[in-house]
Amino acid sequence: MPHGGSDSTLTRREVVTYGGTIAGAGLLAGCSGSGTNNAGDDASGDGESYSVSISPMGEVSFDSPPETVFTRLTHHADMAFALGHGDSLTAMHAPDYYDGLWNQYVERLPGVELDWTGLYSSWKPSKEKLYALDSDVHLADPAWIGVQDAWDRDDLDEVADSISPWFGNSLSDTHQEPQVDWVDEYEYYGLWEQFGIVAELFQEQERYEALAAIHDEVIATIEADLPAESERPTAVMIAAADIDEIYTYLVDEPGFLNAHVRPFGPRDAYEGTVENNTVIDFETLLEADPDVILHLGGMEPSTDIAARREAFRDDPVASEVAAVQNDRVYAQGARYQGPILNLFQLEMTAKQLYPDIFGEWPSYEEGPYPEIPDEEQLFDRQRVADIINGDL
């Protein structure tokens, strides 16, 4: 079964139990329709039908691996891409934005291409559009889709029955609670644990095992050299379209959104005084006075991270923050990371938090992920590229 790595070994997988009804039959089992989801038998890679189980759907059956895939969030899109099925996507959230961001990293994978431009933007998908897309599987969490006003349980069951199954888990992001009437129990997965389940969906277990082995090596390298907790820096994560509205995120929150930070054990600069995913001002930031600021989205091509740093330095309050004074405001990628982005973000976070141990993070202002000397890389780019391209 899936490798654990830091995302599951440092955060125990939990099960949340609720009263209420079991998910409809169309969600729990594969159903006939235009997709590849007719009911079947055990898992098989030889053209026979197979079943895979994931919360909250339970067991879902397929006739064959999906060739067209609806996604909503980028952790699922990246999983399909990592397994060599990046061209199968029919939809994803903000495709042009995330195409630009992901390609900043993919640039460093020789011979690998990624193109998500022009896909249907699925943040608030319509049922009518899902019929038009006619995807073989909806790699998305119905417990999340269902919180939107335009959707109810009957709509979700109709899509599963008439088009193709739902198969995804998103509330593991921060261990969110599903609606009380959604399912009897909801299971939380680590990033790489869920990736292993999605690999079974695509019948790409060999690709998964190869990538998971690389991830395990990266985690082992990190854990072998971490300093004592008292010697670790304080840190915060932020995201901002501009400096007038800064969202902040806690580095010690549970869930896969911290899969690139949790293995390093940085100390929460807020010390419990600020809630996750809230808007803060510079006064709040100065009161926390973090050693390191991790700026999500800072590597997206349209984001001028150099101008952001300058704006911090020019502000009379923000300029007093230790991270600003010591030039430790670092660009990062995205929280909804899949396995490929996670590998890069583990490496960059290692260098941003602990340059004396893992090597300096290059001064970054624009362009793709910086070139890192071979001896300071935490994973082999060519090996990852080969796995994505099917050279195992």
Rank of each mutant, 00 (worst) to 15 (best):
D63G: 15
F202C: 06
L296K: 07
S135H: 08
L139Y: 04
M1C: 00
G30C: 09
L285I: 05
E200S: 11
S302I: 10
D181A: 04
F264C: 01
I238H: 05
F379D: 07
D374A: 15
P254Q: 13
P263E: 08
S55F: 05
M348V: 03
V137T: 05
L101Q: 04
F256D: 07
Q337H: 12
Q337I: 13
S88T: 11
T74I: 00
Y270M: 00
E376C: 00
I305A: 13
L171I: 07
V137K: 01
D281K: 00
S121E: 15
E204Y: 01
T21G: 03
W361K: 02
L101F: 10
G338C: 03
A29I: 03
F358N: 05
R328G: 06
F81R: 05
A39W: 00
E283V: 09
D63W: 02
I243R: 12
T174Q: 13
V261Y: 02
E231F: 04
D96G: 02
D268W: 01
T174C: 00
A132Q: 12
P316G: 05
L139T: 03
D374K: 15
S170C: 05
V384M: 10
W102C: 13
S126H: 06
D96R: 04
A269Q: 10
E375A: 14
E14I: 14
G19C: 05
T221Q: 13
I54S: 01
T303N: 11
S302Q: 14
S49L: 07
P95W: 08
D291Y: 11
L257I: 13
E371T: 11
P2F: 06
H3D: 04
V317K: 13
A385L: 06
R308L: 12
G390A: 14
R207W: 04
A323F: 07
E14V: 15
S302A: 15
I163C: 09
E206W: 00
Y97H: 08
V218E: 06
T21A: 08
Q205K: 12
Y188K: 03
P178Q: 01
H3N: 08
T278H: 00
I357P: 04
A82D: 08
E204P: 02
V106F: 05
L27K: 01
E366I: 07
V324Q: 10
E310W: 07
D380F: 14
L353A: 09
A160D: 03
T234Y: 13
S164P: 08
V198Q: 01
Q148W: 07
E113F: 03
D154C: 02
P233F: 10
A43E: 05
V317E: 11
Q179V: 06
G367M: 14
N389R: 10
T221G: 07
H3I: 12
A132I: 12
R335S: 13
S49V: 05
G30V: 00
E376T: 11
A228Y: 02
D268C: 07
